[in-house]
């Protein structure tokens, strides 16, 4: 027997309505989380924005379709901003069923990829007491990148030539 969710989302129209309802719920949850964290009352928020308390109450009740600008203004009045990300259709439901965090559809494109020479990774090679330095050389493109690993062992402790010694006292 199919669940209510499955019956509703069986049609395109139903699935879109559920997606819209979920987003409205997320937005409302965001507003209430911001209010809780800011320790402001609805009257405080209304005063901050110069609107009537009833208007603020309407927004916090989720009464009607809140405009994007209104959401931003309310969040900002409480000291916050919203940050959005894309997830695949149906992913929030699947994540809830599997009791895991929702996976974003893409990596955040605003995050810069590491440059070729910025870092190395240390891994421990089993059977070898010394750590192994893996040198990454990456060439980047818009949607993909290639990684080549070159393995270099760190010098053994007794292979260092002394340069000097000094004392520090605090």
């Amino acid at each position: 027997m199919r669940s209510l969710y499955e019956r509703v989302t069986a049609t395109l129209k139903g699935a879109r309505a559920v997606a819209a309802a979920r987003l409205r719920h997320e937005v409302l949850a965001l507003l209430h989380q911001a209010q809780l964290a800011s320790r402001m009352t609805q009257s405080d928020v209304a005063r901050e924005l110069g609107v009537r308390r009833s208007a603020a109450n309407q927004v916090f009740r989720g009464d009607g379709n809140i405009r994007t600008n209104t959401l931003a203004e309310y969040l900002h009045a409480m000291g916050f901003e919203a940050d959005l990300r894309l997830v695949r259709a149906g992913e929030p439901r699947q994540a809830a069923l599997e009791q895991r965090a929702v996976r974003p559809a893409f990596e955040d494109w605003r995050i810069r990829r590491p440059q070729p020479t910025t870092s190395g990774v240390f891994v421990t090679n089993e059977g070898d007491d010394r750590p192994v330095l893996v040198r990454w050389a990456a060439t980047g493109r818009t949607e993909s990148f290639r990684v080549e690993a070159e393995v270099t062992t760190l010098p053994a402790a007794n292979s260092f030539t002394p340069l000097g010694k000094r004392m520090f006292t605090t």
């Binding site: 330095l133 270099t152 760190l154 010098p155 402790a157 292979s159 260092f160 030539t161 002394p162 340069l163 000097g164 010694k165 000094r166 004392m167 520090f168 006292t169 605090t170």
Partner: peptide, 21 residues
Amino acid sequence: SNLQLSVAAGFALTEQALSYK
């Protein structure tokens, strides 16, 4: 109340890397 530290430095040079310890 007091921290006394000594630091010894050394280097190792190979064809692939210059390391300081």
